[in-house]
Each structure stands twice: as structure tokens, then as C-alpha cells.
Simulated assay, not measured.
Amino acid sequence: MNEGFVKTPEIQALLDRVAGVGVPDGNARAKAIVRDLVEHLMVLVARYEISEDEVWQAVNFLQKGAGEFGLIMPGIGLEHFIDLYLDARDAEAGKIGGTPRTIEGPLYVAGAPLVDTGANLTQDPDDTTTLYMTGRIFGPDGEAVKDAIVHVWHANSKGFYSHFDPTGEQTPFNNRRRLRAAEDGTYSFHSKMPKGYSVPPNGATDQLMQLLGRHGNRPAHVHFFIEAPGYRRLTTQINFGDDPFAKDDFAFGTREGLLPVPNRQGDSAHVAFDFHLQRADSGDDERFSARERLSVAA
């Protein structure tokens, strides 16, 4: 059917009622967004002549896959799109430079122990290479950032994160810490080298990737939040540049400038990586986004 059907008076009137247009209560911005969103969905139904069965198959997929939305969002590129959109807004405002932002992913846990720089992140036995990571945190004018907190989290050598490990074997906050950087902006830590992972087999994300002819693999990587008074909070991660999926990350987390290659020597691997922060324009720039995150007492 021609998608012009959506522009007929009957459908347009339906959309107005759906979005509460003309009703004094409610939020005007939410009304406009919901109206556009539903209209775009209607256009897709008409454009591709989506059947009733296909509509409800999609609804069933979303209902059953609700627990994996944190993986589906990066898997379909929406989380990466938000990063690109924010970059474009920054460029329009003349805010350039700094370490690239990239996706947070769904596996952060608030409440990790706050420790001094130089700490060991790994509590559990893990017979693999030891990762040593060092660097400095700079501001936009090259100044050392004071009072910085470095949130670090990564998987173990099986590709599992503590608090989300299906084996239940990891202790709380294994490979998770908040580091107090030194006054000169330096930070360091060591831990057992993480491994990349794949999405849960036969789960909603895996089913979607198979439908699209794609894989669901992530390279080995380490996640970071960097926060400091007066600076914009940075959400980023490094992918190890020598991982086979480093430039084919199903979650689109790879960005230029975030692909260090570890210096591997025997049973150790060394990564030197500096973070460059942007100045905060307001308190909003320093705070975490409204994303819901697991919170556990240390």
C-alpha cells in the first residue's frame, strides 16, 4: 500500500488522539516525540506492507528480549549514533578535542570500592596474562586534572563480568574499582587480561544478529568513566588493537584513538593511555546520564 495512506485525514486524526494533541494535560515535547515516532512506525508498516503476523512477531521479540535491551541498543547502532550525534553537537558549539567518547554498555555496577591509584582490580584467581595500565589525565589546556576519579570495569579471561557472570563464580566487584588519580593526574592499575565476549547464545540479541547476517562478538576491552570537578564526565573504553574483532565490534564501540595495542611481554601486557577531558559548562556536564544502572553496596 502507498505510504501516503498515513497522511490521510483519518490516520492523522488518529495520531493526534494518540499523542494527546489538543488535550491540555501532559508534556508538549513528549506529545510531539510520540506522535512522530508512531507516525514513522505507521509509515514503515505501509512502505513494506508489514503483515499483522510480522507486527506481532516484532512485539513478541521486544517483550521476550526486554532483558537484553542493553545489548540490543548498541547492536543496532543506536548507542553509537548517540555518540556521533553528541560529537556533532559539540562541533557546532566549537567544542573539539579530548578523548573520544564511546558506548557505556549495559554492565557497569555502581558502588565499586574507591581505592588509590596503583590498585589491583582482580580479586579472583585467573590464570592468564596480567594487564598493567598507566597514563595521565589532562584538561583542555594540557593541565593535570586534580581530584579525578577513574571508574574501571572489564570482563575476566572467560569474557564474563562480575555481577553478571552466568557461572556465579566471581566475587562482587571483581575487575571493578574506582581509582583516585594522583594530584599530578597520573593513574595506574593492574588486573588479569580480559577476553572479548559474545552475546548470550540464542538470546534476543543473538537472534537479531543472525536475522541480519551479523555476528555478536566484542573484542577484549576495558571500560572507563572519568570524572573530576570542573570537567565534563567522560564515558569511553579501549578496545585492544590486536584483537581479531577490534575493528569489527558488533556493538560499534571501536573508535579511532581508542585502539591501543598492548605491549605483550611473557605473562604481562602493558598499555599506556592518557585521557584528555573537556571543561564542563555546567553541573549537568559533570553528572552521569539518566541511564538505569545496577547499584551494589561494596
Rank of each mutant, 00 (worst) to 15 (best):
A46Q: 10
L44W: 04
D124Q: 03
G26C: 05
L258Q: 03
T236P: 02
K195S: 12
L211F: 10
D165L: 05
Y187L: 07
A110Y: 02
P200K: 01
S268H: 14
D126F: 03
R264E: 10
F245Y: 14
I76C: 10
R176A: 01
L15C: 02
H80L: 11
A88N: 11
T117K: 01
V271H: 09
L62P: 00
T130D: 05
K146W: 02
G4E: 15
N217M: 06
H80G: 12
A46W: 09
D53W: 12
G77A: 13
M1E: 13
T128G: 08
E183I: 11
G65L: 04
L121N: 00
L41G: 05
A28C: 03
F273R: 08
D36K: 15
I76W: 01
I11W: 08
V261F: 02
S188L: 04
H154T: 05
L14R: 11
L44V: 11
N263Q: 14
E68W: 07
K146I: 06
H270C: 04
F69E: 10
G97D: 01
D90S: 06
Y48W: 13
K195V: 06
I137C: 02
F5S: 03
G94Y: 07
Y231H: 11
Y161K: 02
D116W: 04
A119V: 03
Y48G: 01
F69A: 10
T117M: 02
I72G: 00
P262Y: 05
P200Y: 08
G22L: 07
G22D: 03
W153R: 00
Q12T: 07
G203Y: 09
A32Q: 12
S295Y: 07
Q63E: 15
V45F: 12
K192E: 05
R264S: 09
V34W: 03
K95S: 08
P260W: 01
R279V: 13
L71W: 08
